[in-house]
Simulated scan of single mutants.
Amino acid sequence: MMMAAMASDNAKEAEDNARKAKNAVKGVLGTIAALLDQLGNIDRVDLGKLNQIDESLKRAKGKIANSDLDRKLAELNDVARTQEDMITDYDRQIRQIRADILNLEDIKRTLPDGCFNTPSIEKP
């Protein structure tokens, strides 16, 4: 009796699995049918227009190659590096000038007020 119940349960589970598999296959077949339908509706490719586009692309590539962009880009990079070096040098000079100003202010604070170079009263 127990074995029969187990067999019945297994049969029901197998039937459920088969139903799920059947539904999954139907879904995939529906997707494939939709894709085939879409592929059937694709317009034919106009080879003349495709060749025109290809020629336009070749002309554009030729213009780019003839414009010597690589050399111009290298020159611009060199100029940018030179400007960066100049900016770095200016920053260094500004720091040095500020340090000199602080040094002069420190000297000014340490000097006494007034003049202490008094002439001698007696003459030798």
Rank of each mutant, 00 (worst) to 15 (best):
M1L: 07
M3T: 04
A4G: 10
A4R: 11
A4N: 13
A5G: 07
A5M: 15
M6K: 05
A7P: 00
S8Q: 10
D9F: 11
N10R: 07
N10D: 15
N10W: 03
N17H: 01
N17F: 03
R19N: 07
R19Y: 01
K20R: 02
K22T: 04
A24C: 02
V25M: 11
K26T: 01
G27T: 08
T31V: 05
I32G: 00
A33D: 00
L36P: 02
D37R: 00
L39W: 08
L39D: 12
R44D: 06
R44N: 01
D46C: 08
D46G: 06
D46V: 02
L47H: 03
K49N: 14
K49Y: 00
K49R: 08
L50G: 02
Q52Y: 00
D54M: 08
K58G: 04
R59L: 09
R59G: 04
A60G: 02
K61S: 13
K61C: 06
K61D: 13
K63D: 10
I64A: 11
A65K: 09
N66W: 09
S67T: 00
S67K: 10
D68W: 03
L69D: 11
K72E: 12
L76D: 13
N77A: 09
D78F: 14
R81Q: 15
M86E: 12
M86G: 13
I87T: 13
T88C: 13
T88W: 12
Y90W: 14
Q96P: 05
I97S: 02
R98I: 13
A99Y: 13
A99M: 15
I101K: 10
N103E: 14
L104I: 14
I107P: 01
I107K: 07
K108T: 10
R109F: 07
C115H: 07
C115E: 08
F116D: 01
F116W: 04
T118M: 03
T118G: 04
P119F: 02
S120F: 05
I121R: 07
I121T: 10
E122D: 10
K123Q: 08
P124Q: 05
